[in-house]
Computed example of a mutant assay.
Amino acid sequence: MELGLAGRRALVTGAGKGIGRSTVQALCAAGVRVVAVSRTQADLDSLVGECPGVEPVCVDLADWEATERALSSVGPVDLLVNNAAVALLQPFLEITKEACDRSFDVNLRAVIQVSQIVARSMIARGVPGAIVNVSSQSSQRALTNHSVYSSTKGALDMLTKVMALELGPHKIRVNAVNPTVVMTPMGKAYWSDPHKAKVILDRIPLGRFAEVENVVDAILFLLSDRSGMTTGSALPVEGGFLAT
């Protein structure tokens, strides 16, 4: 399926690793000019080496003022992928203030701020746009030690709906993707223990975790005009986990 993304300009957060990095690579392959945002300069350097033409921006999105400075001059953006996130997993009775603050700053507040910057520019230019927020299956199902992370993703799902409601009149679509465990290098390392993995796999009808391309394909579809009548949705990419 031809998605017709060539010639557009996208901004991707959390672009240094995992889903974000693969999304940048896929967008570049589709002819999209990409602004890649990461807090790790080395990751951006290697990404630019792989995808010449990528515009790197190094900033910690938990820092509101630094983010404002870093993104104030990125120029016109047609597509936005809010992928940056942290997963600080703690038992409920051991949750720290630091974990709460960091998680909500990156997983929710930064999405609001970056989306504001991009959407205001779209509206000022009078152009349509598409935003995809990377959420999680844990926004809708309880998982041990995920109190804070799941709370941020549940809030992100609702933020997606309200953004879609308010930005729709400006022809800006906003959707979320909600993956299960994804086999990024970090995902493989964390879920390599078969006993730990079995807890989740036993609840997935397809019996496997997601590959990165499964999530990237969903993101690109939601960015494209092929999903032109879809907004405010949370698209599961979880092998049926949420159906059980």
Rank of each mutant, 00 (worst) to 15 (best):
G154I: 01
V86L: 14
A99F: 06
V212K: 02
R120E: 15
A218M: 05
E55Q: 09
V77E: 01
R69K: 13
Q90E: 14
S115D: 14
L143R: 10
R125E: 15
V174C: 11
L11R: 02
L80C: 05
R109A: 08
A29N: 08
K97M: 15
M183V: 13
A66G: 11
G49Q: 10
S233F: 10
A10H: 00
A130N: 08
A197W: 01
E68T: 14
I123V: 15
G4H: 05
L27W: 00
A29Q: 11
A189R: 10
A243Y: 02
V182G: 08
F209A: 11
D63M: 09
H170L: 06
R102C: 07
R39E: 05
V12I: 07
A85G: 14
V48H: 01
S115L: 09
S136N: 00
A119T: 12
E2Q: 10
S115I: 09
F92N: 10
D78G: 04
L156I: 02
G126M: 06
I117R: 09
R203G: 07
Q140R: 07
K171N: 15
S135I: 06
A26Y: 01
M158Q: 12
V127M: 09
W64A: 15
V81L: 03
L108P: 11
R21M: 11
V59Y: 09
S135A: 14
R39M: 04
S233L: 14
M183D: 14
P236Y: 01
L201K: 02
A164I: 08
V59N: 10
A119C: 15
D63P: 11
V37F: 04
D217A: 11
G240N: 07
V162A: 10
L108S: 06
G49M: 11
L206V: 15
L143S: 13
G75Q: 11
A176M: 03
V81Y: 01
K171G: 06
T23D: 02
S147C: 11
Q137I: 12
A30W: 00
I117Q: 15
D78W: 01
I172E: 09
S136Q: 02
D105W: 00
G240R: 04
Y190P: 13
I95N: 14
G154A: 13
A29L: 13
A15C: 12
S147Q: 05
A130W: 00
S233Y: 13
E94A: 15
H146A: 12
L93E: 15
F221K: 03
L220W: 03
G240Y: 05
A29V: 10
K97G: 13
D60N: 08
E211Y: 11
R102A: 10
R21Q: 10
T96F: 05
H170Q: 12
A84F: 05
G240D: 06
E65H: 11
T152V: 03
E98M: 09
C28Y: 00
